[in-house]
Simulated assay, not measured.
Amino acid sequence: MLDGIDRRILRHYQADPSLSTSELAERCRITSGVCWRRIEKMQSTGVILAQEAVIDWGAMGYAVEVSLRVTLDKTQARAFDEFTAAARLVPEVIEIQTFLGRVDVRLSVIARDMRHYQEIYRDRILTLPHIADIEALMHIARVKSSEGLPV
C-alpha cells in the first residue's frame, strides 16, 4: 500500500518527471536517500511503469486525428487477437482500445492531412481482418487530456 509520502512523491513526480531525486526529495520534505528508495520500490512493484517523452504529433506535421469505432465479425474465434495484432502494425494507429458492447475496438489514427488519412483508411485500415462495421469520428478538439492520476 502507498502511504502519504509515496503519494506526495507521485504527485510531484507526475507533475515534473524531469526532477532529480534531490529536487523531488526537497519538494516532498524527505531525504534524497528515502526518496530514491521509495521510487525504486514503486518501480520494482510496478506502481511507476516508465518515464517517456511525450511528443506533440501536431508539431511533427500530423494535423488530422480520427477515432474509428470498429465492430468485429465475432463468428471468428480469433477475431479480436488477429485484428489487434494487425492494427498494431499500422504506424499511424496511436491507440487501440477494446470494449464490451456494440463497439468492439476503438482505434485512434493520425494523418498529415485528409488525403493522407484517406490513403491510410483505404490501404491499411479497411484491409484489417474481421471488420464487420466501422464508424469514423473526426477529432475536433481535445478538451482534457491527462495521464496524471489523482494521488
Rank of each mutant, 00 (worst) to 15 (best):
A85C: 00
M138H: 14
E26W: 11
T71W: 04
R78G: 10
L89A: 13
V143Q: 00
V70C: 09
V66K: 01
D123H: 00
Q97C: 07
W57V: 15
S145E: 13
V151D: 05
I96Q: 04
R142T: 15
L10I: 15
R38M: 10
S20K: 06
M138Q: 12
L126P: 10
G33Y: 03
L137A: 14
G33R: 00
I120N: 04
T31F: 03
A53M: 08
E135C: 05
R115C: 04
D56Q: 08
R37F: 05
D104W: 01
S145W: 13
A132G: 15
V93D: 02
S18V: 08
L128G: 01
S18C: 07
G101S: 13
I5K: 08
E119K: 11
Q118F: 02
C35N: 07
I30F: 10
Q51P: 00
V70R: 09
S145L: 08
M138D: 08
A136Q: 08
G33C: 00
E65M: 14
M114K: 08
D104K: 01
S18Q: 14
L68I: 10
L128P: 02
A63T: 07
D56H: 06
E65V: 12
S20M: 04
M42L: 15
R88L: 07
I125M: 06
H130P: 08
R27D: 03
C35A: 11
D6E: 15
S32A: 14
L137W: 06
R38H: 13
L89P: 00
L49Q: 11
V109A: 08
L107P: 01
L149Y: 05
L10K: 12
L24T: 04
I94V: 15
L137Q: 12
L2S: 04
R88T: 03
Y13M: 06
L137D: 11
A79C: 06
G58Q: 14
V90H: 01
T98V: 14
A53I: 05
A50D: 07
M42P: 13
S32G: 15
F80Q: 00
R78M: 08
I55D: 06
L126C: 13
E82T: 04
I5F: 10
R27V: 04
E26D: 13
W57D: 04
A79Y: 03
L19W: 10
H130T: 12
H12T: 08
Y62P: 04
R122T: 14
R142Q: 13
A63W: 02
R106C: 04
E40P: 01
L128Y: 03
I94P: 08
A25M: 09
R78C: 05
D3W: 01
G58D: 14
Q97V: 06
V90T: 03
I120M: 09
M138W: 11
V90R: 02
S145Y: 10
M1N: 06
V151S: 00
R69S: 12
D6M: 11
V64C: 11
L2Y: 05
E40N: 12
D16K: 13
V90M: 02
L100N: 09
P129I: 05
A85T: 04
E52F: 06
L107W: 07
D133F: 03
L72I: 11
L128E: 02
I30T: 15
D3H: 02
F99C: 08
P150Q: 10
H139Q: 12
R112A: 09
E147S: 06
V54A: 11
A87G: 15
V66I: 09
L49D: 05
G33H: 01
R102N: 07
I134Y: 07
Y62V: 06
R37G: 01
V34D: 03
L100Q: 09
